[in-house]
Design a protein around this nucleic acid. Structure first.
Lengths: 194, 194
DNA sequence: CGACAAACGGGATGGTCGTCCCGTATCGTT
DNA sequence: AACGATACGGGACGACCATCCCGTTTGTCG
C-alpha cells in the first residue's frame, strides 16, 4: 500500500470518527471528505460505501467496550461488573452519537457486525448478564434485549449527550429497574393498565 | 369548503394514519397519496408540508392520550394513575410508529405542537407526576424528562412493536426503576402486590 | 532520472423526495 | 343550463446525496 494511501485512509478515519461522533450517521460523505482534506473519491475508494466507513468506526469503539467488559468480568463481583458495564456503555454512546445510533438499531446490527470481525460482543454481554443473574444481582428473567433497550432509554433522555448529571440519574433509575426486586416473589403481579 | 375537498381531506388523513402508524415518518407523500387514491397535489394542498400532516395525525392520538390521562388522574390513586399512564403511552406508541418517533424526538416536538393546538399534554403529564411524587409512589427527584426517556426505552426493546409480552416486561422493569426506592417512606406505591 | 502503476480530486450520474404549478375537471349557485 | 370558483392530478422543479468515473498527479522502483 502506498504511503499516501495509508495516510489518507487514516485521515478519513479520524475525520469520520469525530464527524459521526457529533452528527451521527446523517453527516454526508462530502462533509467527511472536506474535514479530512481529501476528495470524496478518496473516501469512497477506501470505504466503498458510507456504511462500511460507519461500521469500521463503530467497531473500533466496540473493541474497546469488549475489552472493558472482559476486565470488569475478571476483576469485579458479578453485580458490580454488570452495572458498571451498563454505565460504561451509556457513557461511551453518549460521547459518540454514531455508536448510540448503532445501538438503537439505526444503521446496522452491531452484534452481527462485531461477530463478522471476530469481536465477541455478544459473548461478553451474555457472560456479564448470566453471572449477575446467577449472583441474584438482577431480575432472574432479565434478557440482554431488555438491557439494551434501557441503554437506549438512557440515551433518549433529553440532554443525555451533554449533561453528565442527567445521564447519571438515568443510569441510576434504569439500574434500579434491572436490579432484582427485594425479596423477589415471582408469583406477584404488577401494574395493570386502566 | 367544497364537499369533494372535505372528502379528500378525510381520505388523506385516514391513509396517512395507517401509513405513518406502520412505516413512521419515512413513508413518502407519494405513497400516502397513492393509498388515499388522490394525487400528490391534493395532499400538499390540504397539508402544505409533510410534517403538517404528520403533526395533525400525531395530535389526534395525543388528544386521546390527554383524555385518558385526565380520566386516570380523576379516578385512580396517584401511583396507580401514574404507572397506568406510563403503560398506556407505551402501548399507544407501540401501535403507532409515528407517535413513537415523535416521542423519541424524531420529527418534531410533541409537547410544543400539542400546546399550539390547545392540548395541555404538558399539564396532565406534570399533574400525574406531581401527584405520584407527593404520594411517595415514585422517586422524589423524578422529572418528566426521565419518564419520557424510559418510555422511549421500552419502545426500543427488540420486538416492542409486535410482542405485547416483551412490552409488558419492559414496562414492569421501567416502572420498578421509577418507583421510590425502598426505605424512602414507601407510603405504598403502585406495585402493590396485594 | 524516468516510467509506470497506484491513488487522487471532484465533477458527472442516477435516484429519491418534498413542494409547486397549471391545464383540466368538478362543484355549487344563479 | 351555464358560469365562475374551487379543487384535482400528476408532472416539473430543485435540493440533496451516495457512488462511479476519468483525467491528472504523485509515489515508488529500476
Amino acid at each position: 500500500m502506498r504511503a499516501d494511501a495509508e495516510r489518507n485512509r487514516a485521515r478519513v478515519l479520524a475525520a469520520a470518527m469525530t464527524a459521526f461522533a457529533t452528527g451521527g450517521l446523517s453527516v454526508s460523505v462530502a462533509e467527511i471528505a472536506r474535514r479530512a482534506g481529501v476528495g470524496t473519491g478518496t473516501v469512497s475508494r477506501h470505504f466503498p460505501t458510507k456504511e462500511s466507513l460507519y461500521e469500521a468506526i463503530v467497531l473500533l469503539r466496540v473493541g474497546e467496550i469488549v475489552d472493558q467488559a472482559r476486565w470488569l468480568a475478571a476483576t469485579k463481583d458479578p453485580g458490580t461488573a454488570f452495572f458498571a458495564f451498563f454505565a460504561h456503555m451509556v457513557d461511551q454512546a453518549a460521547a459518540n452519537r454514531g455508536l448510540a445510533e448503532a445501538l438503537a438499531g439505526d444503521g446496522f446490527d452491531v452484534e452481527a457486525a462485531a461477530a463478522r470481525t471476530g469481536l465477541d460482543l455478544d459473548g461478553v454481554e451474555r457472560e456479564l448478564l448470566d453471572h449477575a443473574r446467577r449472583a441474584g444481582a438482577v431480575r432472574p428473567d432479565l434478557t440482554w434485549a431488555d438491557v439494551k433497550a434501557l441503554i437506549v432509554g438512557c440515551l433518549a433522555r433529553e440532554g443525555a449527550f451533554t449533561d453528565a448529571e442527567a445521564r447519571r440519574r438515568m443510569i441510576e433509575i434504569a439500574c434500579a429497574g434491572l436490579a432484582a426486586p427485594p425479596g423477589h416473589d415471582p408469583s406477584r403481579g404488577m401494574i395493570t393498565g386502566g
